[in-house]
Amino acid sequence: MLKIEDLHVEVDGKPILKGINLEVEAGQVHAIMGPNGSGKSTLAYVLAGRDGYEVTKGRVLYKGQDLLEMAPEIRAAGGLFLGFQYPVAIPGVSNIYFLKAALNAIRKHRGEDPLDAIDFMKLSKEKAALVQLPDELTKRSVNDGFSGGEKKRNEIFQMAILEPSLAVLDETDSGLDIDALKVVAEGVNSLRGPERAMLVITHYQRLLDYIVPDVVHVLIDGQIVRTGDKDLAKQLEKEGYAEVRDAQPL
């Protein structure tokens, strides 16, 4: 599904990612953990195609194709989804119509007919119920005046509607209370399947109790310094990043 090979990325001439290697297969859930500023969001943004990141070395294959060549909307149409760490508010653009535009743009790209208003409303109601997003929020402007937790729920709501094949979730659990965390995790789990994969960025082992990962990576200073199974997350929680890094340096 996703193959990252020796990826080096600079921002404003400053190296941030320093040789990332990562392979995610269909059906798998990978977790990425790491201290603040280690480059997790940078990796997520590079995968989604945000401007301002210069890839100085390496490549990324998505479903066998060169991902870095594609415009962000083409990546999305190809089934890539980024759940933002800090979702931006867009006053004046209604959440629900924005999402309909997104879904239909993706469907068009795939050669499918657009969903009409009635079918879309049905789908939206069903998915909003799944992540317990109040109806009122689906109609408001995108993330405008949403609380931190509501924004995160809205990300998962969007993911549930777009049904991506690869979801990159950047700290979707941050700022969520325990109940919301369960709701979000259920939303994510309901999307798991043999055809889909997920890259879950988190600081907390807690999330991984609900979304049990197949593989856990530790990213420190732009490099993956350790890879293990779900127990690695537990060890990190107990011992901290420094211990884990020093216990087994590169």
Binding site: E73, A76, V88, A101, A102, A105, V142
Partner: peptide
């Protein structure tokens, strides 16, 4: 940031431009 958010959801660049331009005055 707004442009990227829209595009990352699959909305083509020109449509994203139009949506934001419209929203700017619609308010």
């Amino acid at each position: 940031d707004q442009l990227f958010y829209l595009r990352a959801r699959g909305i083509p660049e020109d449509l994203a431009h139009s949506m934001l331009t419209y929203a700017f005055l619609e308010s």
